[in-house]
Amino acid sequence: MVNEIISKTTLLDYLQEVKDPEIPTISVVDLGIIEDVKIEAGNKVCIEMIPTFSGCPAIRFMQLEIINCLKKHGFTEVEVKVAYEKPWSSERITERGRKQLLEFGLSPPPRIKGEIEEKDLEQAICPKCLSQNTVIKNPFGPTLCRAIHYCYNCHETFEQFKPL
């Protein structure tokens, strides 16, 4: 099927179909975990992905989803390498990704340039009212990448995608 030359952009478009199983509004591309895409001779493609948090249990699942997705689009050989040693940063989430997090009800991580300091971990905007009058309740939430905060405006707790 893949006779014409498939560009990297097309491939990334295909990968939009693969979502984070724990946040089904955001794709692996917008999450910024696709590090490299190589199209090789024939119908072979090599993807390099980097896990968000080292202990993320969804890595293996997303790896398989990527393979299934690209096979569906006609690639016969799909290799997905996980580069455990490469640091992922929340700065890698795209603008679209940040909106999708918000749609899901998760506060997107604050934009931070350079090394993250402890005070950066404490700030979050409320995904319901967008207030910044919030406080961190627990740096650990229902998944590794989420922290629990409280909004003084809504008087409700909310989850944030942690800055990393």
Partner: peptide
């Protein structure tokens, strides 16, 4: 919250051990 925190930290740490064992 502490239950969850210890569970998350456990997950992180087992993840780090996997990275070092992979090396």
């Amino acid at each position: 919250e502490e239950d969850i925190a210890f569970a998350s930290m456990a997950q992180d740490k087992v993840g780090y051990s996997l990275s070092f064992y992979t090396l």
